[in-house]
């Protein structure tokens, strides 16, 4: 069953635009993305910084209003939800941010932070909320007596556990994890990832897991979507992406990641140059400026995602 259905979503940001000039150049952060996430599944969204993956994540839970396209969650349109409907949707969709130091209000106790969602939505009787918070604290691997502590008394990994508990407090079905472990030490990353996996089984959660770290994504995802300059260029099951990537950008991404197996021959695909500006993306295929396979058709025709089974690639030369 499809829980989240994104259809041709676009997000433009107007830059500049001051007192006299109304609009500056437009940044096309997300350019016509369609994605589906099934209930209970984890979709990994990878791409380099600035490719629009965080913007996509924020649009999905409507922290940002998308410019066009539709997002349906459990059959309900998120983009056009009324303030009342949106409030109800907030209970079902939550987000975990990258920076655990910025994610918690320094003047709020841990207990108050976690309880806030329950207060907002009137979940549990006021007298029993405290018990529910303690239960959540224990569920994410913290202690009941952390209730009264302030964020500065915790390490990054502990804070991320608190942030997870806060998101879970409203009983969501779907969580956007926006670079949720990127700011943590590698040893702590594994703990938090395993916590997320345990919680997924325990509470039947669906994740949109956004990351630039391919190993992390492989560890946690059922399916992976690769994003480049506001577009999805390849999407497939995690194993397919890692074992038989078909888009030249995906191949380059995978070969840039260090492989822990020294026996494996190093892959040769590499890219040169910088990501083009999202203010003025190249004509045709956005990746053609850095692609070794690019020819004149790539400059003229913007490739669409073409599916073979569940493996979709947006490339004119995917077979090469």
């Amino acid at each position: 069953m499809t829980l989240l259905h994104i259809e041709d979503m676009t997000k433009n940001f107007a830059t500049g635009g001051g007192f006299l000039s109304k609009t500056g150049p437009i940044v096309q952060a997300v350019r016509g993305v369609s994605l589906q996430i099934a209930a209970g599944e984890t979709l990994g969204l990878v791409g380099e910084s600035g490719c629009g993956k965080s913007t996509l994540g924020r649009c999905v839970i409507r922290l940002i209003q998308p410019t066009s396209g539709s997002i349906r969650f459990d059959g309900q349109d998120v983009t056009t939800a009324s303030p009342y409907e949106l409030r109800q949707l907030r209970r079902k969709m939550q987000i975990i941010f990258q920076d655990p130091y910025s994610s918690l209000n320094p003047r709020q106790t841990i207990g108050a932070s976690i309880m806030e969602g329950m207060d907002i939505h009137g979940i549990h009787a006021p007298g029993t909320r405290r018990d529910s918070v303690v239960e959540l604290l224990e569920k994410v691997g913290l202690k009941a007596d952390h209730f009264r502590n302030y964020p500065h008394e915790f390490s990054g990994g502990q804070r991320q556990r608190i942030v997870i508990a806060r998101a879970l407090a409203v009983g969501p079905q779907f969580i956007v994890a926006d670079e949720a472990v990127s700011a943590l030490d590698v040893s702590i990353q594994a703990q938090i990832l395993n916590l997320l996996l345990d919680l997924q089984v325990m509470m039947n959660l669906t994740y949109l897991f956004i990351s630039h770290n391919l190993h992390v994504v492989r560890h946690i995802s059922d399916r992976v979507a690769v994003m480049y300059l506001g577009r999805i260029v390849e999407t497939a099951s995690a194993d397919d992406i890692y074992l038989s990537p078909r888009h030249p950008y995906t191949k380059a991404l995978l070969s840039s990641a260090l492989v822990p197996d020294p026996q494996k021959p190093p892959q040769k695909v590499s890219v040169t140059g910088d990501v083009p500006s999202p203010v003025n993306p190249p004509s045709g295929c956005a990746f053609r400026t850095r692609c070794s396979l690019a020819d004149e058709i790539c400059a003229r025709v913007d490739p669409h995602l073409i599916f073979q089974g569940s493996h979709g690639v947006a490339c004119h030369h995917a077979e090469k």
């Binding site: 922290l63 994610s103 209000n105 320094p106 806060r166």
Partner: peptide, 24 residues
């Protein structure tokens, strides 16, 4: 991020001001 998180939890602007902005 904590202000954004409060918004994602469904907090109103008034609540964010009183609980998250002013205390800081």
């Amino acid at each position: 991020d904590f202000v954004e998180a409060a918004r994602a939890l469904g907090a109103t602007d008034g609540r964010i001001l009183v609980h998250h902005i002013v205390p800081n």
